[in-house]
Simulated scan of single mutants.
Amino acid sequence: MKIVLVRHGYTIGNDLGTYTGWSDTKLSEKGIEELHEYRETYAYPKTDRYYTSDLVRTIDTFKLIYGDETPINESSPAFREIHFGDYEDIRWDQIDNIPYNEVYIRNQPHVNGETISQVALRIFGKLNAILDEMVVAREDSLTIVCHSGIVKTFLMFLAPLSFDTFREIATPNGLGYIMDVDYDVVNKLVTMNNYIEIPKK
């Protein structure tokens, strides 16, 4: 099966430098302009199914890349960004406490936010449910427009990569990865064969 992961476009929250996990920040003018350009220059694959998180920045990104004529199968809270707890909507450079990524990769609870275990459980639980439906429907490809932390978590668990690589995994706004995976429907096991960056046309 083929799973395409796309990060949302550049947002107002990105511009302000804030922790915007579950906060519903919108795409910025820069983000909208970049997505118009990327649609013409990058080869976003067509797939059998299309999913986004339920936050407006992923839904708007999807529409700008794939157009209104391509339907979204579901916009699911399962594919939301990491919830940053008490850090939500606070600028990164105003945090005197431990940076969130430092505790996320150690799976430690922090400032009422999500751990890597909690995030992995919700995204892979949803992914398995989708893949089960796809096996029945004889479909073999899907796209998920989501968030940086979600793309990184997918890759760390499936590649697999050390959690210490969290900071090093590139997740440019509006771009992402194409993963080739096998799915064992009996044992609910997703195995990564390889992955590549979304290529230019």
Rank of each mutant, 00 (worst) to 15 (best):
L35M: 14
G125M: 10
L131V: 14
C146A: 02
T47L: 00
G17S: 09
I105M: 10
S117R: 00
K126V: 05
I105S: 03
L55V: 10
L131A: 13
N173R: 02
R106G: 04
H110D: 06
I72A: 02
S76F: 07
V111N: 09
L16M: 12
T47Q: 03
F84I: 01
V111F: 07
R91L: 10
I82K: 07
V103Q: 10
E88K: 07
T165Y: 13
G67F: 11
I144L: 07
S162N: 15
A78I: 00
N97F: 06
E34A: 08
G17L: 01
S76V: 08
G9C: 08
T41A: 12
V186F: 03
K200E: 04
P172V: 01
H36R: 14
D184R: 13
F157G: 06
V6D: 00
D24P: 12
K2Q: 08
V135Y: 13
K63Q: 13
L64K: 03
N194T: 14
L131D: 11
N193W: 06
N128F: 02
I90P: 06
V181R: 10
N194P: 04
D184V: 13
E168H: 13
N193M: 04
Y177S: 05
D182S: 10
D132K: 00
G149L: 11
Y183T: 02
G9E: 02
W22D: 06
V151A: 03
F79N: 08
D180H: 14
L55R: 14
K152F: 06
E102V: 12
L155R: 03
D180E: 15
